Simulated scan of single mutants.
Amino acid sequence: MVPSVAMTTQFVLANTRLAPVPLTPEVLLHLADEAIELWERTETDQGGQMPPPFWAFAWAGGQALARYVLDRPDLLAGRDVLDLAAGSGLVAIAAMKAGAARVTAVEIDALAVTAIGINARANDVEVTARLADILETEPDADVVLAGDVFYSREMTRRMLDYLRRAAARGATVLVGDPGRAYLPKDHLTLLAEYDVPVPQTLEDTPVKRTTVWSVNP
């Protein structure tokens, strides 16, 4: 059963605080101070039915991608943008701040959809947040953005297939990645690199060398 908006809103606000994102301080997000405690809470609340709280952290791949689009508003100005596996909504919010006409942020976690709405309002931008798995559908956005999505073999297969189909239809397709094992470099073109501050409870180092790539058709 999908939890109510009131329930997810209460959970997000009770477990986070509004703070600037390290690499993109012009964006504010409701972020968790303590990763392990929140992770354990999502495993026990609602009978252990909550997915991991990916929405409560500014992951390195998303930070790098957000920084990239904020610094290049010509890429998004006046265009329809899709943010896949949007998490906190960081990349979607950055896209709106960079001048996108419309941004849709897609997630499969109801808490993430709620967090995206809360974070968009905190930044005074409008983002359409959808609870859906769209990877088997046909892409139709002008720009597709995805931060840190190559973390498993199966996710990489499904995500790359969708992203390449989007690129083949003429979309600009950009991904951010902090060196995950399944990064499909053979299908990507390197655009930029950043040193991104991250919580050590999430990663193996306080700073992750993170890359931004375009996806080849």
Rank of each mutant, 00 (worst) to 15 (best):
E37D: 14
V127M: 09
V27Q: 07
R153V: 12
T128S: 11
T210Y: 07
D186K: 14
F54N: 12
A86P: 01
V207F: 08
W55P: 08
L174E: 09
P73H: 04
V127Y: 03
W39H: 14
V144R: 02
W59A: 09
T189L: 08
P25Q: 07
G99T: 04
L75T: 04
L76Q: 02
D177N: 15
V69F: 05
R158M: 05
L190D: 05
V143C: 09
E193V: 13
H187G: 00
D124V: 04
D148E: 15
A192T: 03
L18H: 08
A101V: 01
T24G: 06
G176Y: 09
T104S: 13
I116S: 10
L31W: 02
R67P: 00
P51N: 06
I36K: 14
K208E: 11
A110Y: 01
V69Q: 07
P73L: 01
L31T: 09
R153I: 08
E43Q: 15
K97N: 02
T137S: 15
M155Q: 14
L84Y: 05
A100Q: 07
H187S: 14
Q10F: 08
A66R: 01
G89F: 03
E126M: 12
L183E: 10
L38W: 07
S152G: 07
T128L: 12
G176E: 11
D33M: 04
L188F: 02
L84R: 00
I116V: 15
